[in-house]
Design a binder for these strands. Structure first.
Lengths: 333, 333
DNA sequence: TTGTAAGCGTTATCAC
DNA sequence: GTGATAACGCTTACAA
């Protein structure tokens, strides 16, 4: 059942059928009615492939992320998909893992499906070496690329991100102001966002006269228990700290677990903060002070910017917004 | 740049170019070499739309779920996408929310994109009334449908799920055996999986001589704090319970929070269990005893079954597997 | 307001 | 092995 069949039965040309299909105003109500009726009767469905071939678009956007099961990335995917759908675009999802080679390969997979644009969610997509990023620049020649929560300067590549440096800076300042004098910073990776957060911590320490701040920043093992043990070991070496600024909520949970296991009072003699305002931050007891980096806002904005690009408008290469500190029970702030 | 251009430059016909493109063995090495060289020189890329039109498939699978930010659904999406990609299929994601109307609408969206099959993740897709499920049967006439963690009998619809009833039954039995005499069951919704879990609880209570078990099952408010307050209120009415069997980890976290707020010892005079073996179950302190319902296994199996369907093989309409109780610190088991 | 006809870039079926 | 040529089902000038 295609538009030829419909056109015959309705006694019109295929062009008219197509016009009805695309809601053209240049069809008489009567004709339109008739055509729709015939379509209805025959359970006609439009062939997306044929339409795509003509229009050279399938109104589909590719979403790349390292791991859709990550609680933060998952929420970003959710919001992106919702906004895209509102605008009539479908979402093609691809989880790349954390290796450059796979990222390149899966990006090709999406491009080969002729997506109209790409969203890269998470700052791990931007490598330090320009050479390793060249595949992105190459891809950007075909479709606009949006990097969410990461940044990279190149033609047809747009970045949108929370000012993580500023958030951690303010958070650390508040923690120091509220009585802590020996903060430590805990992180997992130093991708773009990771580096910015670390900068925020270091800068806050410096401006508050904390000695050798970089010796107070620690890379932590990935899982909750391991990270908790790591802190216990650190404390056992005699290294003193009275505040843990964690780069994400999961790491903050580890700190809470460490505190509970070693009998330290939170926030009494150990303040703890997380990042992302995820469900994890309220699952722990006490509930964790964290930073809302406005995933929903980021996604809504990103989609809105994409639509502007499609409309041929000129948009800024980078859009940065501020986060919001959510004070809870693990701090005095 | 299309195959006509290539064929001209290479001095062959478009059919030969197409054969090279599709790795047909019926091309002489020399010709193949030449064609590939011309393609390379011109940076030729195949047009996915045209190919799809010819083949009538784009090797794309639609994944429908209520909410991709849900920690359980997110992991399912992750595993599904990974497995599909391994088999050369892309994934189109659509989050439907929890309303029937939207589910129908978004299912149409995916069908209109000509996906080759549909995965419905979560038992909320199956309605109680057969009439409300008719849209699924209709869709199944076009493409095979897989329901993950739910069940429905119809042609071209396949179900794959964990035996949640059995898991909760065993869990409840163990809890009762370990000393609790007044268990309560906490749940959020009574979709297919929800009903099965409740049955497991009720059956276990009956076989252990617990009086009027159905008066011991409670629907809870959605968010963590509200559910915790709900339990406090319940206790305040004088209703006694010494074990909380929760239908998911988040609800179990609420129970832990209630216990901590009201000074009850866990598991001393209150045992608590969750479900899903999610990150939430280890974020809480004490870590929560839970059921691993094997999301990864479910997804890997589902994709494998789909590939068998594509191969024209006959597969069972329903596949059910057992869960695995993970004993942690909130129980005596 | 409607119709004709030329694309869109492949794959598939023949014949040679 | 290779080449013509007909689908595939739609959009869209251009004509009427």
């Amino acid at each position: 059942m295609n538009i030829y069949d419909i056109s015959k039965q309705a006694g019109v040309s295929i062009a008219t059928v197509s016009r009805v299909l695309n809601g053209s105003p240049k069809v008489s109500p009567k004709t339109k009615e008739k055509v729709l009726q015939v379509m209805e009767q025959n359970g006609y469905v439009l062939n997306a492939f044929a339409r795509s071939l003509g229009l050279n678009t399938m109104r589909t956007i590719g979403i790349l992320c390292a791991d859709a099961s990550d609680i933060y990335l998952a929420s970003a995917i959710y919001f992106l998909e919702r906004e895209l759908r509102k605008n009539g675009y479908a979402s093609m999802l691809c989880c790349t893992g954390y290796h450059l080679e796979e990222r390149q390969q899966y990006l090709q997979l999406l491009l080969s499906r002729n997506v109209d644009a790409l969203f890269l969610v998470g700052s791990n997509f931007v490598e330090k070496s320009a050479l390793k990023n060249s595949y992105l620049k190459e891809a950007a020649k075909k479709v606009p690329i949006f990097i969410l929560n990461g940044s990279m300067a190149a033609k047809n590549i747009y970045s949108i991100l929370c000012d993580d440096r500023q958030s951690i800076l303010e958070l650390t300042n508040s923690i120091l102001l509220s009585g802590s004098a020996s903060p430590i910073y805990l992180y997992r990776s130093l991708n773009y966002s990771g580096k910015r957060k670390l900068e925020g911590f270091l800068d806050a320490c410096k401006s508050n006269g904390i000695a050798s701040p970089s010796s107070r920043a620690f890379p932590c093992p990935p899982n909750i228990m391991q990270a908790s043990v790591f802190l216990q070991d650190l404390a056992d070496t005699g290294f003193y700290f009275d505040a843990c600024i964690a780069s994400d909520d999961e790491l903050a949970v580890s700190a809470v677990k460490y505190a509970q296991a070693s009998g330290r009072q939170v926030p009494g003699n150990l303040q703890i903060t997380g990042y992302n305002a995820s469900l994890l931050s309220v699952c722990s007891t006490p509930e964790i002070t964290t930073v809302d980096n406005r995933v929903e806002f980021m996604c809504v904005t990103a989609v809105s910017l994409l639509m502007q690009v499609f409309d041929g408008k000129d948009i800024p290469a980078q859009t940065m917004f501020t986060g919001n500190i959510i004070s809870r029970a693990t701090t005095h702030i």
